[in-house]
């Protein structure tokens, strides 16, 4: 399973980056989403893959019964997913504000739009 996982991580990473390297900021946000998914899976995979044995200790025992999945990367990725949510929404709202204020979401037009805005503010 490691090879398919590597392929999945790689394709997601490349797709995310490609989307981020474009002038359309909405595509940038989508890229960021795909990229964080890729990294989450990468960290998860690095903790090794285990099937069917969730890191939960059965009632009556004080240690896991037999081999269970690695809990550490799961905990790390869990917070990463939630934080990623906060980050994405913040970015989206920032983007929305940029559009409302500057009238564009094209990366190469933002600089000029900002200058125009400053000029208008001075007037």
């Amino acid at each position: 399973m490691e090879v398919p996982f590597a392929v999945m991580v790689g394709v997601l990473f490349a797709s995310g980056l490609y989307l981020m390297m474009q002038r359309n900021l909405m595509r940038f946000v989508f890229g960021l989403l795909v990229l964080s998914g890729s990294v989450n899976v990468l960290i998860f995979t690095a903790g090794r893959l285990t099937r069917g044995a969730a890191p939960v200790i059965p009632a009556g025992l004080s240690t896991p019964a037999g081999e269970v999945a690695n809990a550490l990367p799961q905990a790390v990725v869990l917070t990463a997913i939630v934080i990623g949510f906060g980050l994405i929404v913040f970015t989206l709202v920032l983007l929305l504000r940029v559009y409302e204020r500057l009238g564009t979401v094209k990366t190469d037009e933002l600089g000029d739009a900002l200058v125009r805005l400053d000029d208008e503010d001075e007037v």
């Binding site: 969730a54 939960v56 009632a59 869990l78 917070t79 939630v82």
Partner: peptide, 8 residues
């Protein structure tokens, strides 16, 4: 704390 779930 004992089964899948929690604050998040």
């Amino acid at each position: 704390h004992d089964l899948p779930g929690g604050g998040f």
